[in-house]
Design a protein around this nucleic acid. Sequence first.
DNA 1: CGATATTTGATATGGTCCATAACAATTATC
DNA 2: GATAATTGTTATGGACCATATCAAATATCG
Lengths: 173, 173
Amino acid sequence: MTVSKTAEKSSEKPSDATKGRKDATEGLPEALQLGELSEQLGYVLKRAQLKVFENFLRCMASLQLTPAQFSVLLLVEKNPGRNQTEIASTLGILRPNFVALLDNLESRDLCARIRSTNDRRSHILVLTDKGKAVLTRAKKLVATKHESRLNELLGQANREALLEMLSKIANEF
Amino acid sequence: MTVSKTAEKSSEKPSDATKGRKDATEGLPEALQLGELSEQLGYVLKRAQLKVFENFLRCMASLQLTPAQFSVLLLVEKNPGRNQTEIASTLGILRPNFVALLDNLESRDLCARIRSTNDRRSHILVLTDKGKAVLTRAKKLVATKHESRLNELLGQANREALLEMLSKIANEF
DNA sequence: CGATATTTGATATGGTCCATAACAATTATC
DNA sequence: GATAATTGTTATGGACCATATCAAATATCG
């Protein structure tokens, strides 16, 4: 050990004003200094991501769609006729973990697995009619409640610049 | 069910060219179209965050520090004499989950819990000498290997703009 | 052709992170 | 001094992520 146990506060300071934290300026617990933390991109990136996901979930509460589920619906709509492996891998989801996710969407009749006639191992993925309808509503909610709020916070131009830089990091880092 | 089971590909097309996917242009599995996904800030944000954390871990492999551990060391260095509740809460870590994190840092002699004399319930947190030394090396690694690579990818000005926008989202969203 | 290897969806399993309830010790409050 | 609140801690469960493994189906190659 390099530090003596049972010490207290800033040493070299046997003063009286800061003893027991009972000054007249009490009440607030004196917010901590973030210091270099607020300059760490990873830290800020993570916090921002949590906030965005949190807001996304609130906006989608009526449809009960998580970001991952929404991304699956979007990708299946854009790429109908693909199998689980293809959809999962382009989303960065491992096949085993994709099974339960799909089970959920299928049990809610948003998505369907269809045994392919070409390759009877694979399951072709398609949106059901209900899935298409829900996705349409989801897109509207995201646009009007979610992304729009980001626009008014950052401004249209900044939001696009942000997206471009994040894409660069996601793809070229 | 709204879709007929055992279908295949784009219907209304009993053609021959796209049957069995055995054209002359075979080989590549024909990359999927991301479509609107690449415009979803949450999606891109998450992917970027994963990439940044991944790179952070690689850069810190020699010191065996995770982003969370690094943030704790940074915060304790900047705010010595605070207790676990204060450090954990400003990092968005729940007290129960902070215990094991601290146990790890303390077992490696990077950080120490000191029973406060003011409030004998709380544990004051301080960096050990080894903790300070490791943190110094960690900062250098982050600066030279991690953040520098972001700079050359985005450019100094863009990196600062990115940080500012992410901070705005993290704090005001 | 037929033996072997590969692929696909699936299960089981373990790890990490996150969230809640509950507890003993200590302190604050009235 | 009785009651309430706080601190660190444990236990626990859920969500997410990663690996190994499997049966069925297909591909490969002698």
